[in-house]
Design a protein around this nucleic acid. Structure first.
Lengths: 244, 244
DNA sequence: CGCTGTTTTGAAGGATTTCAATCGATGTGG
DNA sequence: CCACATCGATTGAAATCCTTCAAAACAGCG
């Protein structure tokens, strides 16, 4: 059961919202109750519909939470990197997982089963408080994305997705190198409710304008500020000063 | 502070998920801690951005939770009838209200402030458990709506919204009379991420086919099964049996 | 090198929005 | 009680964004 994280992994763990405000000693105890789970690319931590048994914190790799539509299309609800928590809400109730969690790259995570989560929360009430705050935060974010999906154009939504991914710190984010995202056009399409064709066109257009560099399953963002401008719809698609 | 509900209102209260599994005596105590809040049509229980202070259970009328986009468009996140709980999540954390709650008709609700909620939950742990379950349920529903918005056609989404409203028991739902919804085309549009024009066209088309009767700010559903079929996309837009 | 999976690009089509004009219902004040 | 103003609903026509389908280019891998 017990698990000793590397320094790098410890860093990820400390970033997790759920562990904020805990002493090192407390963290130690919590980590000792964890189980290490490793999943290869395209493997699953859990599947949609299974009873929610485990709460995860990602150590390495990216994980995508996706729902399958009755027609077989996928919708990506969230794309997580190291230090992100998965299945917070669902493990607090006794529901089933509403989504599947697939490793987008080889991934490792710490897992705590439901009972352990409850007993740890009893021991460290701060965990419960953090948990509630996380739930509220997730809900808030999902509501925002819902609003965006309902009101915004595709290009804007794709821009938002890219900005979010970069700011979340997904993808290799070296100090001096420009941010690099590792995901396919298809992924981006499923994250923004559009088709891979449309995403491809958008990426091409951004590349022509020098904002990004598009490659196979990757995107290098050279001018994040421009992408942010698109996300916030600050780019003048019509001249701001009209002639009389 | 104390408040004596009528029989009709008591019925609404008992329907609320948050109060499931409580004895009458317990319910009594909880109700005595409540404050009655009455809001006229187009008035607000609270506004987006205000610090979340109060948790509500609706007694009468309909309430819509909506978010305003930066451009001034509205997106309706939820449309609630009597017996529905509002601001469950947000009152458990110390966040701001992420949406505004507007009375779609003259409305009354019971309100408990944050402190009261916490102390009641301490007294009756069942309240806390129910609360968590509600949160999980809300999240699950929002995820589903997100998926629908991302993948489904407008007509299907409108059908879903109508079905949901009817099954939630919004609107006058006499025993023998067909279900009647009281909302504008604009409302339906804002609930489904489309325009009032498109909703109007859809309603007209349904009316021609005899599924509904459309009126000013109301919709009488004569053949709910057909609307459900559209929501589930069971209607053959192409013949199911093809000729060789 | 050939295979597989990803991406690009073009052209056609469709669903939905936008805009403008009209109609109908509701409520108000003279 | 009617005339008028207001608000919601309807409908048509044009525009547009996006999807769909097909074909080809491209990258990585055994």
């Amino acid at each position: 059961m017990a698990y000793k994280p590397t320094d790098q992994e410890l860093h990820s763990i400390r970033r997790a919202t759920i562990f904020q405000g805990l002493t090192d000693a407390q963290l130690q105890i919590i980590l000792q109750a964890a189980r290490l789970v490793q999943v290869e690319r395209h493997g699953f931590f859990f599947h949609q519909g299974e009873p929610a048994s485990t709460f995860y914190v990602i150590l390495q790799g990216n994980v995508r939470l996706a729902q399958l539509t009755p027609e077989g299309r996928q919708v990506i609800m969230h794309y997580f990197g190291p230090g992100s928590e998965i299945a917070v809400i669902v493990v607090l109730s006794k529901a089933d997982y509403p989504v599947s969690a697939e490793a987008a790259s080889d991934a490792a995570a710490l897992g705590w089963d439901q009972q352990t989560v409850f007993s740890l929360m009893e021991q460290f009430p701060r965990l419960a408080i953090n948990g509630l705050e996380m739930v509220a935060g997730r809900f808030w974010e999902l509501q925002n994305r819902y609003r965006e999906l309902a009101t915004e154009r595709v290009e804007q939504r794709v821009a938002r997705a890219v900005v979010r991914l970069v700011q979340q710190g997904n993808g290799q984010n070296g100090r001096s190198t420009p941010p690099l995202l590792t995901l396919s056009r298809q992924d981006l399409a499923e994250m923004t409710g559009t088709t891979l064709f449309t995403v491809s066109r958008i990426c091409s257009s951004w590349e022509q304008r020098g904002f990004v560099e598009a490659g196979r399953e990757q995107l290098i963002i050279h001018q994040l500020d421009h992408i942010i401008a698109i996300a916030d719809d600050l780019q003048p698609h019509a001249p701001t000063t009209a002639e009389p």
